[in-house]
Simulated scan of single mutants.
Amino acid sequence: MIKFILKFLLLAMVLFVGVFIGMEKAHQGMQDMKGYEDTSLPPPVHVSEGEDGKIEAALLGSEINHTEELAQKKKELEDLETYNFISSMGKTFSSFVKEATKNIIDFLMGLFKE
């Protein structure tokens, strides 16, 4: 089973990289058909080194910057102080089911001990 999972993950990674290679080849083909380089048509995958030595990447025209995005999303979630009725109902229901299951198991164990 482990061999299958490893083979599957390897194949999935190869296919994933193949998709990006195909997108790059299609981009080159589009430029070749036009006969000139169009700046409005950015490359699908672009990786470069910035002035400060950091590696900058862009995927399908959007910049990839995880540290700033994660910090921004974390701040937004911390600032968000709303009451979610469905979530609180789910928590209440799950605690009820948990306690009921615990009591049933304790009751059955009490019957089997005697």
Rank of each mutant, 00 (worst) to 15 (best):
M89W: 03
A26D: 10
M23N: 03
Q72R: 15
Q31H: 11
E114F: 02
I105Y: 10
L9Q: 12
E81R: 10
A26Q: 11
A26G: 06
G35I: 11
N84E: 04
V45Y: 01
F112A: 15
K113Q: 11
S94D: 04
T92P: 00
G53H: 02
A100P: 00
L6Y: 03
F20T: 14
T67E: 14
T67A: 08
E76V: 09
G50M: 05
K91M: 08
H46M: 04
V19G: 15
E37H: 09
A58F: 00
E81A: 09
E69M: 12
K113V: 06
F4C: 08
M33D: 15
M1E: 06
D79Y: 01
G110Y: 06
V17E: 07
F16K: 05
H66M: 13
N103E: 15
L77Q: 12
Q72W: 09
F8D: 07
E37S: 12
K102A: 13
S62C: 03
P42C: 04
E37P: 01
F85T: 14
G22S: 11
L80H: 02
A100K: 09
M89N: 09
D32T: 07
D38W: 03
F4K: 13
S48M: 11
A100F: 05
V45R: 01
K102D: 06
D52G: 05
Q72G: 01
G18Y: 06
N84L: 04
E114M: 02
V47P: 00
G110W: 07
F16I: 03
K54W: 00
T101R: 05
E99L: 12
E99S: 10
D106I: 08
L41E: 13
I21Q: 07
K7W: 08
V97W: 00
A100D: 13
G22M: 10
I64N: 03
K98M: 13
D32S: 14
K73F: 05
A26C: 06
I86Q: 09
E49M: 12
F107C: 14
K73I: 05
F93A: 11
G18L: 04
A12Q: 11
G35T: 15
F4M: 08
E49Q: 08
Y83K: 12
F16N: 08
S40K: 11
I21P: 03
N84C: 01
I86W: 04
G90N: 11
T82R: 06
M30F: 02
L11N: 07
K7D: 08
K34C: 02
H66F: 12
D106W: 04
A71S: 14
D38H: 04
Q28K: 13
E56H: 01
F93E: 11
T101L: 10
D38I: 03
K25W: 08
N65F: 02
P43F: 00
A12G: 11
S40Y: 02
T101Q: 06
V19I: 14
L6F: 04
V47F: 06
A12S: 13
V17G: 10
M23F: 04
A26W: 07
I64F: 04
K75Y: 04
D32K: 15
I21F: 01
E78V: 13
A100R: 09
K102I: 08
M33E: 15
D38T: 02
I55H: 03
V45N: 02
A100V: 14
D52E: 07
G61W: 02
E78P: 01
F20L: 15
F96H: 10
E63F: 00
L6V: 09
E24M: 08
K3F: 01
T67R: 06
G110V: 01
E69F: 07
E114L: 02
L59S: 03
